[in-house]
Amino acid sequence: MQILIEPDNKMVHIERSGNVINLLKKLELRPNQAIVIRENELLTPDRMLDEEDKIVVRKIASRG
């Protein structure tokens, strides 16, 4: 699955993450540290992901 990490604008490939919470775990993020977007829709941690999905993970901590 292709994941775009923002604001770093870094593409990563992650396999078999299952649901959003597992994807965030693999990215070493807590659910309160990022919003997860698929086709302009926000996903809650329980939502299942497909290998074909294009996902944006937007980290939310502001720095300065």
């Binding site: 604001p7 919003i35 300065g64």
Partner: peptide, 15 residues
């Protein structure tokens, strides 16, 4: 962050 996304706010997130 969720509100900004849902409201379509085009904010600057460069640190």
């Amino acid at each position: 962050a969720n509100y900004s996304f849902l409201a379509g706010i085009d904010y600057c997130y460069a640190p």
